[in-house]
Amino acid sequence: MTLVYDCEQGFQFIASIERDYNGAIAWVFLPGETVKLPVVVSASGAKFSDGKITYWSSKGGALLEYNGKEYKQCKVNRKQSIWEDAKLRGVDFRAVGNEPGWTLEIRNSEQILFVTNYGQDRYVFPAPEPVSNTATHTTEYKTSADGKALTVTLKGKQCDDSMADDETYPTTVTIQFDGRHYMGCSTPLH
């Protein structure tokens, strides 16, 4: 689970919680450094600390003690958390669309995951070598698996999310899958 937190005074940090053989740990991404924090006992929520830096999450918010400062009012930025989680899972490119809600992830140039029908249906395809056309500013992936064909076209053209007035992406995505046409927006994850 990866969470992006927006704190007071414009401070932002990312925390990724995972389990290892010793229990839970938190990777906390701070300006200029990444720290691994072990879990410590707390009265409520999940608390991680190395004695210098403390990350304590509870009920959708967090407290961070870092660099001699205490950030008490840190709130989860849900939208950014989804994109950061994908990036940390090794996703190179992520796209989203509506009606019905769908996501597409290209991972390590090896796999394409297409999730549609508001998360109900998941399809995994091998990622083929992309075919790029500099004249039209497009990149196309054509692949198939289990009797289903998928064509993904990425166009270097600004895309406005039809369900979020303020959300603009640098890439327009068109998908042809199982006789249906899907439109959406995307951005590369670096």
Score class of each variant (00 low, 15 high):
130 P>G: 06
93 F>G: 08
121 D>Y: 09
94 R>Y: 01
103 T>Y: 12
86 A>R: 06
80 Q>Y: 00
82 I>H: 09
99 E>I: 03
103 T>A: 08
119 G>H: 03
93 F>P: 10
90 G>C: 02
125 F>R: 02
81 S>H: 00
101 G>Y: 12
129 E>Q: 14
73 Q>F: 09
133 N>L: 02
75 K>A: 14
104 L>C: 14
123 Y>K: 09
120 Q>M: 12
124 V>H: 13
101 G>I: 09
111 Q>I: 15
134 T>C: 07
87 K>N: 03
95 A>L: 09
108 N>A: 15
119 G>P: 07
121 D>A: 11
80 Q>S: 10
92 D>W: 08
87 K>S: 04
100 P>D: 08
102 W>N: 03
80 Q>C: 00
80 Q>I: 02
82 I>A: 05
93 F>R: 02
108 N>E: 14
98 N>V: 08
80 Q>E: 12
95 A>T: 01
95 A>F: 01
129 E>S: 13
79 K>T: 15
88 L>Y: 07
89 R>I: 09
107 R>Y: 00
76 V>R: 05
94 R>L: 14
121 D>I: 08
73 Q>R: 11
84 E>K: 03
112 I>C: 07
79 K>L: 15
128 P>Q: 02
107 R>E: 13
117 N>Y: 11
113 L>D: 14
76 V>S: 05
121 D>F: 11
79 K>S: 15
91 V>T: 13
121 D>P: 05
134 T>N: 12
82 I>Q: 06
114 F>T: 06
75 K>C: 02
95 A>N: 10
127 A>P: 11
111 Q>R: 15
73 Q>T: 11
122 R>F: 13
129 E>A: 13
73 Q>M: 04
87 K>T: 06
95 A>I: 03
134 T>F: 07
115 V>E: 15
105 E>F: 02
95 A>G: 10
103 T>G: 12
83 W>K: 00
106 I>Y: 02
129 E>K: 15
89 R>C: 10
89 R>V: 04
104 L>F: 12
79 K>M: 15
109 S>Q: 14
131 V>N: 07
86 A>C: 04
105 E>V: 03
103 T>H: 13
97 G>K: 04
107 R>S: 13
123 Y>Q: 11
131 V>S: 10
86 A>I: 08
116 T>F: 07
82 I>E: 07
105 E>Y: 02
85 D>R: 08
114 F>C: 05
93 F>L: 08
81 S>M: 01
90 G>W: 00
99 E>L: 05
106 I>P: 07
130 P>N: 03
85 D>Y: 04
83 W>L: 08
121 D>Q: 13
114 F>Q: 06
114 F>W: 08
91 V>I: 12
108 N>Q: 14
123 Y>W: 14
124 V>E: 15
116 T>Y: 07
126 P>A: 02
114 F>L: 15
109 S>T: 05
112 I>G: 05
106 I>H: 00
116 T>S: 14
83 W>E: 06
127 A>E: 04
84 E>C: 00
86 A>W: 03
81 S>P: 02
